[in-house]
Design a protein around this nucleic acid. Structure first.
Lengths: 209, 209
DNA sequence: AATCTGACTTAACACTGTTAAGTAATATTA
DNA sequence: TAATATTACTTAACAGTGTTAAGTCAGATT
């Protein structure tokens, strides 16, 4: 590869980043629904068509934004890493997810409430690496609990347990984001609910001494 | 009101129903995303504009479809009404929700995964009536459990408990519908997960004898 | 018989994602 | 250095969306 080719490639990569960052900004400002290729293009001073030189379509662009967001999602778990007890860590991980959902509702929506059909992921996040992949980190925590025989004897599948715990927390956040303003239900504050739910669930799945 | 005026009003009501039924059909066939006013219009042999004589906009039309769907959602609970033990009934209600989500994914999406901003609800479903309003029924079951002192002493808020239990189940269904095809996670079958989750949660929230 | 009402249509607006074809600047090659 | 090729974009258009103002025409009212 010639020097000028390398420079071009670098430039191209930088433009990609610029688009991705602008996309994230537009997303934060206008929400998932208010996001459009044309708006994004206007923001970076390009025509809508230009974006298609860097991304196949809207879906895959959003997919990459999501993956970047999963990176920052993982960073929410850093503060719980020091907790030794895996079950207590599981609790605080759940609370961190709720925290993230409340702080970044649009990103949460994009990550977990919007289907992204068959995207080639794994560009940024290394799947299965607990240091980058949130699900892998959750899994490792559950595995730790299993190894310490903290769960009921009939529960042996780490994947199953991880999915159950995450789904419960996710349900709370999802309902809050989608139905939180619905006056049909007299909604109670989410954080106490989260504590009660996760503590209750963990207690119910735990081995009783 | 003259006889012919009454006839007109009846006719109008019938046309409304026809549109609502066609909308439900289009929704089932093409999903929430594939639903469009124009497609719906074509199906009933009208122009798109005609629909606006009966419904303010797409949002409120879908809102009414949702409310009808909540009616049939409530009927899923009929088979658990015979269960005497409130905590066991709670478990089976959760399983019924999962069942409904698997059977009618598009309706579930529309009901619980799509925000419907500030719709004047209560046209069909009488809010607070356990026989019609699912949430009210859930609430009554939780209240029964509370009266029988089946929950831990610190848990006294029926609304809070109901929301926690439903959110957990909802999370499972929501994740299945939105992320079920995502190969990033090695998804385990949803029904066993649901049983384990609800049993675990109820056990964890229950008073230990 | 003339008027009015109301159910519906026509035609258009302002959007959306996406693509084929074109352009102008830059890099490569003869 | 001049001709060619590549690259980074733009122009213009297509097909679709929700929505609305204005118009039409049959049937009810007067």
């Amino acid at each position: 590869m010639s020097p000028s080719q390398a420079r071009r490639a670098r430039q191209q990569q930088r433009t990609r980043q610029r688009i991705l960052e602008a996309a994230t900004a537009v997303l934060l400002k206008h929400g998932v629904d208010g996001f459009s290729m044309r708006r994004l293009a206007a923001r970076i001073g390009y025509t809508p068509t230009a974006i298609y030189c860097y991304f196949a379509d809207k879906e895959s662009l959003l997919g990459e934004v999501v993956e970047r967001q999963f990176m920052s999602f993982r960073s929410m778990f850093e503060k719980v890493e020091r907790i030794h007890d895996p079950l207590r860590r599981l609790l605080e991980m759940g609370m961190a997810v709720v925290e993230f959902g409340l702080r970044h509702p649009d990103h949460y929506r994009l990550m977990f409430l919007t289907p992204h059909p068959a995207l080639p992921k794994g560009r940024l996040v290394e799947r299965g690496n607990p240091g980058q992949d949130c699900y892998a980190y959750l899994l490792s925590t559950v595995r730790e609990g299993l190894e310490m025989q903290r769960f009921r004897t009939e529960l042996r599948d780490a994947e199953q347990l991880a999915q159950v715990v995450f789904a419960a927390v996710h349900g709370l956040v999802a309902l809050h984001l989608v139905k939180g303003d619905d006056p049909w239900v007299d909604w109670r504050p989410i954080k106490p609910k989260a504590r009660i739910m996760i503590e209750g669930l963990i207690r119910g799945l735990s081995r009783t001494p």
